[in-house]
């Protein structure tokens, strides 16, 4: 196959992109929109969580600890425990939300958390109805 002169010149056509608006966002002034359905942080509706630890059982990364609840919000919560998630281990597979019997555990689209100490990444899901 012979290489033609045209093939050396045609790529220069890319130069016209100089006049286009940049595709990147000016973070932090402009932020990317949260996407509905994105698998971000966990939320747990404490008024329906029954403390059954199904979520802890299914999590193969052993990211979930069941810890004692401060204020009982659900009289049906037999164990008085709610899940807390270690975000150093979680892979956001959302299996825990799949197996939650009352569907109280969910993922929200919020997903930004920066910290300088990885040991602080223990997250108590926000109490939000879904």
């Amino acid at each position: 196959m012979k290489i033609q002169l045209k093939n050396s010149i045609a790529p220069l056509g890319a130069l016209k992109k100089i006049f286009e608006h940049p595709k990147t966002l000016c973070y932090p002034e402009v932020k990317a929109q949260n996407v509905t359905g994105y698998r971000g942080f966990h939320i747990n509706d404490l008024s329906t969580c029954i403390g059954c630890a199904n979520c802890q059982d299914v999590c193969m990364n052993e990211a979930i600890d069941m810890i004692a609840i401060d204020v009982d919000k659900n009289p049906k919560n037999n164990s008085g425990c709610i899940p807390r998630i270690d975000y150093g281990r979680c892979c956001w597979c959302s299996l825990c939300t799949d197996v939650c019997p009352p569907d109280s555990l969910k993922l929200e689209s919020e997903c930004i958390w920066a910290d300088d100490d990885s040991n602080r990444f223990l997250y108590l899901p926000k109490d939000k109805p879904c």
Binding site: C52, A53, M66, I67, A68, N78, S79, C81, S118, N119
Partner: peptide, 17 residues
């Protein structure tokens, strides 16, 4: 990781309760 020793055994907790 430190700080995870407050994990409770749910079956025990149900019994205690």
């Amino acid at each position: 990781r430190d700080g995870r020793d407050d994990n409770l055994d749910v079956k025990e907790q149900i019994k205690i309760r």
